[in-house]
């Protein structure tokens, strides 16, 4: 736990790709059991910010604290070692927009790869864990199938189960339903909703406004590389006050 009781605290995160300054001092702190969704226009930096939380992107400046892992970034400071990054990521699960399942492994092997290869569980232990998680996401019968045989919604549920198999403290979701056909979105959101109900700490980037309003403890609105506004779903989505937030949300009327 960090000093202020948050399980995750990112502050003043800066990240540029070449000349393109994507994050200009974005901050967020998340308490244990909270579900925080990040919304914002494309290009506002929300996915990049999320990817900074498990250091798939390395911030150029700022601080990140997750559980007992602490990182400070800045010019002249050494980048974290590969081993430190691997340690952090064991505790931070991530679900990608495009699933990124391992196509050459069965569904069950996708789930057990991390526990066996990273945590050193036996294959038998990992298999049991994996089957439990597949049952939890409603895919117990797909254990031996290969990812190519699954629908998009099923793939994403497997990807969620794969991340959960590491028993992470925090789960990150990067637009988990954006690559799905509309009729498959619901089954993935249902799984995420269940996780929220179980008290999993989560940060989500999403365009599903109704879902965000429904599931979030708090919502962060990102604009131009900073966390412009943070508040409850009521404050941010249902009764937005600022003009730029109203303008952004007006584009979602009737959607989601």
């Amino acid at each position: 736990m960090t000093a202020n009781g948050a399980t995750l605290a990112a502050s003043n995160i800066h990240k540029a790709f070449g000349d393109n300054q994507v994050l200009k001092g974005a901050s967020l702190s998340v308490a244990r059991g909270e579900v925080v969704t990040l919304i914002g226009a494309s290009g506002s930096g929300k996915s990049t910010f999320l990817r900074c939380l498990n250091l798939l992107e390395m911030p150029q400046q700022g601080e990140l604290a997750i559980g007992t892992h602490r990182f400070t970034f800045g010019t002249g400071l050494r980048a974290p070692a590969d081993a430190q990054l691997a340690q952090l990521r064991q505790n931070v699960g991530m679900v990608f927009q495009h699933f990124n399942l391992f196509p050459h492994m069965s569904v069950l092997r996708n789930l057990t790869e991390g526990p066996v290869q990273v945590k050193g569980l036996s294959q038998v232990e990992a298999d049991a864990l994996g089957r439990d998680l597949l049952a939890k996401v409603g895919l117990a019968d797909k254990a031996d199938a290969y990812p190519s045989r699954l629908s998009g919604g099923q793939k994403q549920r497997v990807a969620i189960a794969r991340a959960l198999a590491m028993k992470p403290d925090v789960m990150l979701f990067d637009e988990p339903t954006s690559a799905l056909d509309p009729e498959l979105v619901g089954e993935v959101l249902a799984v995420i909703r269940n996780l929220a109900a179980e008290g999993m700490t989560m940060v989500l980037v999403t365009h599903e406004m109704a879902f965000a309003a429904d599931v979030s403890s708090r919502v962060g609105f990102m604009n131009d590389g900073v966390m412009a506004e943070v508040g409850t779903a009521d404050e941010i989505i249902r009764q937005p006050k600022s003009e730029r937030l109203k303008a952004f949300l007006s584009r979602f009327h009737g959607a989601g």
Partner: peptide, 15 residues
């Protein structure tokens, strides 16, 4: 796909 590297990194695997 680069996403395969990222998926591996995201579960804590080393390079």
């Amino acid at each position: 796909d680069k996403g395969q590297w990222e998926a591996g990194r995201a579960i804590g695997m080393r390079r």
